[in-house]
């Protein structure tokens, strides 16, 4: 075990965690024609992601 491995494993853990978060909230997984169609409002929990025009 060395620094590189520790960092690499941390990155993997973060990636799994991040994927879990994004998958749970379905971030950016709205149907594409709907995202183009939505004219107002944000999606996802507040604080995440931008607005869609």
């Amino acid at each position: 075990m060395n620094l590189f491995r520790i960092v690499f494993l941390l990155c993997l853990a973060l990636a799994i965690g991040g994927a879990g978060y994004l998958s749970h909230y379905g971030v950016w997984r709205d149907s594409t024609d709907i995202t183009r169609s939505i004219r107002t409002g944000t999606y996802g929990p507040s604080g995440v992601g931008g607005r869609v025009k």
Partner: peptide
């Protein structure tokens, strides 16, 4: 309150 599997599949490829 549905989930998506997409991000996990994308992460798998990235890893």
């Amino acid at each position: 309150s549905a989930s998506s599997g997409f991000w996990f599949f994308a992460a798998a490829g990235l890893m």
